[in-house]
Simulated scan of single mutants.
Amino acid sequence: MVGSPRAVVADDSHFMRSVISDILEEGGIDVVAVAKDGREAVEAVTETDPDVVTMDVEMPEMNGIEATERIMSTTPTPILMLSAHTDENADVTFEALEKGAVDFFRKPGGEVSMEMSRLQDQLVEVVESVAAVDPTDSSDVASARTAGSGVGGSGGVTDGTAGADPAGSAAEAAATEYVDDPTVVIGSSTGGPTVVEQVLSDLPLAADLRVLVVQHMPGGFTGRFAERLDARSEYDVREAEDGARIGGGEALIAAGDYHMEVTGYRRGRLRVGLTQDPPVNNVRPAVDVTMETAAERITDPLAGVILTGMGEDGAAGIRAIHGAGGYTVAQDEATSAVFGMPKRAIETGCIDGVAPVNDVAAAVLDAFEVT
C-alpha cells in the first residue's frame, strides 16, 4: 500500500457515516465511498478497490456478516467491524470474524459525537493497522480460521498437514507425559480472536494446563468471547472475575477494560485480581501486566505466547517470563494479521520459538513434555 489508506465506510446511520468519515479523513485516511447497507458496501468495494472497509454490524438489506462473507469471497479486502455494545451484536461480530473480518471496534453509545471524538485517535490507528493486512497473502491464516471454527473441542494438535487425524492426535496427546502444574499465558490483539480460538482448541486437556488469555477487547465482548472458546475447546473457559481461581484444565479470559493480575499461586492453583489501574502500552487489559505478575508469582512450569497484534504489548511480559525460566513462543509473520506484537517480542531476544499459528500449541506442549 502506497500513500494514504483508502477506505469505504458502511453504516446505516447517516450521522455515523458522517462522523466516522470525518474522523478518518482528519486522520489522513482517504474515504473513497460510503454505503448505507451491506449491498452498497459490496458494490462500493468492487468499484473502488479500497484498502480497508469499516463495516457496521446491523444494517438493512444485507447485514455486516453477509456483506463480509460476500466481499471476502469476491474481492478480499481487510474489514474492520464496528459493533454496538449488545449481546446480539457481539455474537454477529464474532461470526463476521470467522467469515474473514480482521478485527472490530466498539461503536460508542450515549453522546456519540463526544465519545467518538475521544476515541478518534484509537479508531484511526486501528483502521490503519487493519488496512495494512493483506487478506490474500497467506493461506495459513485462512486455514487457521477454518480449523479454529471446526475443531470443536477435539483437542487434537493441528500440525497444518492435510488429512491429519484429530482422534489420533488426541490419543497421542493423552499418551504423552507432561510436567506437573504447567501454566500458559497467551496475549493477542488485532486479528487475534480467531487465532486464540485456534490455539486453545489445539491444547489437549491431557496437558492439564492453567491458561490465561489477554485479548485486547472492549468490555461487553469478553464474556461472549469466553463462551465461544469454552464451546470450542476441551478447557473450562470463563471470563475472569476479581478473585477468580483456576486449576488444571481451566482457562480465564481477561475482562474488557480491566487488567488481570496473578495475585496468588499455591499447589497448582492460581488466583487473579482485576484492576482498573491506568492503561499499560495504551491498553487495558494489558498482556504485560498478566505476564509480569505470572512470572513473579508462579513457581511451576510457565510459558508465554504472543500472537498477532499491533503495538508492543507483551514484549516486557515475555522478557519477564524468560527471566523467570519460562518458555516463550511468538507467532510468525506469515500467519500474523499484524506482525507488531510478535515482532516486538522477538526483538527482545527472549523468544525461544517462532511458529505459524497451526504449530503454536504444539510448541507449547513440547516445552511441557516430560523428556
Score class of each variant (00 low, 15 high):
Ser4Trp: 12
Asp11Ser: 12
Ser13Cys: 08
His14Trp: 04
Asp22Arg: 14
Leu24Pro: 00
Leu24Glu: 04
Ile29Gly: 01
Ile29Ala: 02
Val32Ile: 13
Val34Glu: 08
Ala35Cys: 08
Ala35Ile: 08
Lys36Met: 10
Lys36Ile: 13
Glu40Gly: 11
Thr48Glu: 14
Asp49Met: 08
Val53Asp: 01
Thr54Phe: 02
Ala67Gln: 03
Thr68Ser: 11
Arg70Phe: 05
Met72Thr: 09
Ser73Pro: 00
Ile79Asp: 01
Leu80Val: 14
Leu80Met: 13
His85Ser: 07
Glu88Ile: 06
Asn89Gly: 15
Leu97Val: 11
Phe105Trp: 09
Phe105Asn: 11
Arg106His: 10
Arg106Met: 15
Arg106Tyr: 03
Arg106Ala: 15
Gly109Phe: 05
Gly110Gln: 11
Gln122Gly: 13
Glu125Lys: 07
Val130Phe: 02
Pro135Val: 08
Ser138Asp: 10
Ser139Pro: 00
Ala142Glu: 12
Ala144Pro: 00
Ala144Arg: 02
Gly150Ile: 05
Gly152Met: 09
Gly155Tyr: 02
Ala162Tyr: 09
Asp165Glu: 13
Pro166Phe: 09
Ala167Pro: 01
Gly168Ile: 09
Ala170Lys: 10
Glu172Trp: 05
Glu177Val: 14
Glu177Cys: 09
Val179His: 04
Asp181Cys: 04
Pro182Glu: 13
Thr190Ile: 04
Gly192Leu: 04
Val195Gln: 00
Glu197His: 07
Glu197Asn: 12
Asp202Leu: 03
Asp208Ala: 12
Leu212Ile: 13
Leu212Tyr: 05
Val213Ile: 15
Val214His: 02
His216Phe: 09
Pro218Ser: 10
Pro218Val: 06
Gly219Met: 07
Gly220Glu: 08
Gly223Val: 07
Phe225Ile: 08
Glu227Met: 04
Arg228Trp: 11
Leu229Trp: 02
Ser233Asn: 06
Glu234Asn: 13
Tyr235Phe: 11
Ala240Cys: 06
Ala240Ile: 07
Glu241Leu: 15
Glu241Phe: 07
Asp242Met: 07
Gly247Phe: 05
Gly249Lys: 09
Gly256Tyr: 02
Glu261Asp: 14
Tyr265Ala: 15
Tyr265Gln: 10
Arg266Val: 10
Arg266Met: 06
Leu270Val: 12
Gly273Met: 04
Asp277Met: 07
Val280Ile: 15
Asn282Ile: 04
Glu292Ser: 12
Ala295His: 02
Leu307Asn: 00
Leu307Glu: 00
Met310Val: 03
Met310Gln: 00
Met310Ser: 02
Gly311Arg: 01
Asp313Arg: 04
Gly314Ile: 03
Ala315Pro: 00
Ala316Gly: 06
Gly317His: 05
Gly317Met: 06
Gly323Asn: 15
Gly323Tyr: 09
Gly323Pro: 00
Tyr327Lys: 12
Thr328Trp: 02
Gln331Glu: 13
Gln331Lys: 03
Glu333Gln: 15
Ala334Arg: 13
Gly353Thr: 12
Pro356Asn: 14
Pro356Lys: 06
Asn358Ala: 14
Ala361Asp: 03
